[in-house]
């Protein structure tokens, strides 16, 4: 009995180790992170939201920079429809000084970000979500009392030129959710910058 309990415990532990971050269909956790305006933001602040476009992004990464205008556009298009953008910088500023909190404030002002730009100072949120690169999108949908991950991946299929993107993944995923359908595709990959993890 004792042995089987130990085995059960160990397998539970290893399952947790293997499960790195969210898959589509998982329930997403709320967080409380510092915004560039000096206030803390949490998803539960948005009582009327139907969901969220959570985007792990940062200042320094050329792929993130290439998508800044498109992220602003997504927020402009979907915030008033109940799906605001929540941008999170997961990088450690010792490893990448361009991604410090003070430089986030500068960048948000320069690009007139219309959405919260939060700092994942403890690097717990990106780990919980399972983000591996910037930019990396998690589209959350409110279903009953939970926020459910309904799309993970890229914003569209052309990082270099928005005008040449033939698949606007996030846009069409939200349109599917609004129509009561499941996004297709619900998972895509893209080239991005590694997340800069704090060195212990």
């Amino acid at each position: 009995m004792k042995n089987s309990l130990v085995i059960l415990f160990l397998s539970f532990l290893s399952l947790n180790l293997i499960a790195q971050g969210y898959s589509v269909g998982d329930k997403a956790a709320d967080f409380k992170l510092l915004n560039v305006d000096g206030n803390y933001v949490q998803l539960s602040d948005y009582e009327d939201a139907k969901g969220f476009i959570v985007i792990f992004t940062c200042n320094h990464c050329p792929y993130s920079i290439a998508y800044e205008d498109r992220i602003n556009d997504l927020n402009r298009m979907f915030a008033h429809e109940g799906y605001p953008v929540i941008a999170i910088n997961p990088n450690d500023s010792v490893v990448q000084p361009q991604d410090s909190y003070s430089k986030m404030i500068v960048r948000a002002r320069e690009k007139s970000f219309g959405f919260p730009y939060l700092l994942d100072a403890t690097q717990e949120v990106f780990r919980e979500y399972g983000a591996t690169r910037t930019p990396h999108v998690y589209l959350l949908n409110r279903e009953e009392e939970s926020l459910v991950v309904r799309y993970i991946g890229a914003i569209d299929n052309n990082y270099e030129d928005a005008a040449k993107a033939t698949e606007k993944y996030v846009e069409s995923a939200i349109n599917s959710l609004k129509a009561g359908e499941k996004p297709e595709p619900d998972f895509t990959k893209a080239i991005g910058c590694t997340i800069k993890v704090r060195k212990s």
């Binding site: 990959k189 893209a190 590694t194």
Partner: peptide, 20 residues
């Protein structure tokens, strides 16, 4: 090849797209 989703898995399915 900007449509990275079309080829990342063909390099290796384990690759999420971060470099190096």
């Amino acid at each position: 090849e900007p449509d990275a989703n079309s080829w990342i898995d063909k390099v290796d399915p384990k690759w999420t797209g971060a470099i190096p």
